[in-house]
Structures are given as structure tokens and as C-alpha cells.
């Protein structure tokens, strides 16, 4: 157990270092600079003053070393644009992103697996074709376009759902489940399209492979009802590869969250990273990047733990 975790920890540190180097140099070498220093009305002298104040007159390598030195102590610096500590800005946004991604995972995984099973069990049927068709569409339509279309339909045309925000009024004292869900519905739906088709297809092919295995015939020979055969014996086996694909899909989910949050004005990490990048808020960009990388690492670890729980052939870690 500890050996496995130590190994993982070592790999993770290397990964974090690589990601931080790449991000730091990319963002610093990109044209433009912090918005405060880029204001049109600022004089050359004012600009220089700001640049010196932010420490941007040092060479990039030195600045990276400085950043790394503080980062390992947990200090990610201060946001250029608001002067708040980076960590605080991130922490204040996290709950919204967690809410959005957790609901999306819940939604995409349950429907993805369900549709995948139906599609496999009723292979070649109308339902199978319909599910396949919708999956292909979901895979090929960009999320931002679909998001805008949904807003046009549900918010502008029908006026059923709010077009943006988290519905602060439906959350506080006058909490209303319906109000809260009305804000959550479209973002979750749109974010789901980034992973749901993959889960459907993966479950389908995994299920098709499993139902042809000898042990499935054994269960039938024992007199099991077909429902039991599929939902107990076949499903547990079919889920093993599906769990691992969910691990792979987490980075995609997070990058999807950036777009989704931007479309729906969702105040999470995704919209924060867009603000940070646009304003060349270097410490904030670094902070968010590190945070997201850690989330991906932790999620993959969790997936491995779940994996070893459902597949007895994998040694418990």
C-alpha cells in the first residue's frame, strides 16, 4: 500500500514540476503583459513602475525560481488584478466548480452506463441506433455552440430557464430546489456532452464483449433471470474498463468546464482561469493550473482505488 502511494507521490511531483515549468514559460513568453501595465492611458514611466513593482523586470528563470520557492511553502502569491492572495481567489471559486462537475459526473455516468447497456443488450434495434446517433452528434457538436442554442431555446424563446449565473437568490434563505436546479440544468447538460458519448460507447463495447464470455453462459445455465444476468454478472465486469475511462475523461471534463462556465456565467474555476489568462495575471494562472493538475492526479488515484475494489484480480492497493 505505502509503496504504491509513495510511487504515485513521486510521479505526481515530477508531473507538477513539468506542468509548472511549461505553464510558467508559456504565459510569460506570450505577447502582452498584466492588464495593469497595459492600460492605454498609462505613460511609459508608469508602466515601468508597475513592472518593477510586480517584479517583472527580473529574467524569467529567476522569477520561476522565486515562484517555485514560495509555491512549495504553499504561498502562491498575490493576484495582479485584485491583490487578493491567489489561494483565496481559488478557494472562493471551488465550491461552484465542484457542484457543476459532480452533478455532471453523476448525470453522465448514470445515463452513460444505462444507455450503453440498453444499446448493447438491444444491439441492432431502433433504440441502439438512436443512442448511437445521439452519441455521434454529441461528440461532434462543439459545446459552446450547443450551449448558445440551448440558451436561445430555453431562455430567450421559451423563457423557462435562466441563461446565466448560479441563482444566488434560490440558494440562500429562500432556498428552492426547483430554482436551484433551473440554474444547474443547462450547464450540467452541456458539460455532460463532453464525456457522456464516450461513456455510452465504452459501456456498449465493454458490455458486448462481456455478454459473450463463458461465465455469462454459466449464469444462464444456472437458471438466472435475464435481468440478473445483465445487471449483476455482466455489468460488474463491464464496469471495470468503464471506471478507467472515467479517469481518462476527467481532464476533458475540466477543460469542458472552462467553456461551460464561460457560456453560463458560472463563477467557478473555469471562468477564473479565463479571466486570469486574459488579464495576464501570472500568479493566478499558475495557481489555477497547479490546482487543476492536483485535482486530475487525485481523481486518477481514486479511479485506481475503485478499480482495485471491483476487480479482485487487481491486488488491493
Amino acid at each position: 500500500m505505502s509503496r504504491f502511494l509513495l510511487n504515485r507521490l513521486g510521479q505526481s511531483i515530477v508531473l507538477l514540476l513539468i506542468v509548472s515549468v511549461i505553464t510558467f514559460f508559456l504565459i510569460n513568453l506570450a505577447p502582452g503583459g498584466p492588464s495593469a501595465a497595459m492600460r492605454m492611458d498609462a505613460s511609459e514611466a508608469e508602466r515601468q513602475a508597475i513592472i518593477t513593482q510586480l517584479g517583472l523586470d527580473e529574467p524569467v528563470v529567476v522569477r520561476y525560481a522565486q515562484w517555485l520557492g514560495s509555491a512549495v511553502t504553499g504561498d502562491f502569491g498575490v493576484s495582479f488584478s485584485t491583490s487578493e492572495p491567489v489561494l483565496e481567489r481559488i478557494l472562493s471559486r471551488i465550491p461552484y466548480t465542484i457542484e457543476l462537475t459532480l452533478f455532471t459526473i453523476l448525470f453522465a455516468v448514470s445515463f452513460g452506463i444505462l444507455f450503453g447497456i440498453i444499446s448493447a443488450v438491444k444491439r441492432g434495434s431502433l433504440r441502439d441506433h438512436a443512442i448511437n446517433f445521439i452519441s455521434v452528434i454529441g461528440l461532434s457538436i462543439p459545446a459552446f455552440w450547443l450551449g448558445l442554442m440551448l440558451i436561445l431555446l430555453f431562455s430567450v424563446q421559451l423563457g423557462w430557464l435562466p441563461s446565466s449565473g448560479v441563482g444566488a437568490d434560490a440558494r440562500g434563505e429562500n432556498f428552492s430546489l426547483l430554482g436551484w436546479l433551473s440554474y444547474l440544468f443547462m450547464p450540467v447538460l452541456i458539460l455532460s456532452t463532453t464525456i457522456l458519448p464516450n461513456i455510452v460507447r465504452f459501456t456498449r463495447s465493454s458490455m458486448l464483449e462481456v455478454v459473450n464470455q463463458n461465465y455469462i453462459r454459466t449464469v444462464r445455465a444456472k437458471g438466472a433471470k435475464e435481468r440478473y444476468v445483465i445487471y449483476v454478472h455482466a455489468l460488474k465486469n463491464a464496469l471495470i474498463p468503464v471506471v478507467s475511462i472515467i479517469g481518462v475523461l476527467i481532464p476533458r471534463l475540466l477543460s469542458g468546464a472552462v467553456i461551460t462556465e464561460a457560456i453560463f456565467g458560472w463563477p467557478g474555476i473555469g471562468s477564473l482561469i479565463i479571466q486570469a489568462a486574459q488579464g495576464r495575471d501570472y500568479p493566478l494562472v499558475m495557481g489555477v493550473t497547479m490546482f487543476v493538475t492536483i485535482v486530475v492526479i487525485v481523481c486518477n488515484l481514486l479511479v485506481d482505488l475503485v478499480y482495485s475494489k471491483i476487480d479482485p484480480r487487481v491486488k488491493n492497493v
Binding site: 463463458n214 461465465y215 454459466t218 449464469v219 444462464r220 444456472k222 438466472a224 460488474k236
Partner: peptide
């Protein structure tokens, strides 16, 4: 099946479900 008539198969390696 399984009560009045039972069946065993050739492949003992794969005839049992690995996850139960």
C-alpha cells in the same frame, strides 16, 4: 435450468465469473 437439468462446461478457467 440449474434445478432439474444442470450443465458444466469445458472451460473451467473462464466458466466462473472472475469478479464474484
Amino acid at each position: 435450468r440449474g434445478s432439474k437439468i444442470s450443465m458444466i462446461f469445458q472451460e473451467p478457467m473462464t466458466a466462473l465469473n472472475p469478479v464474484f
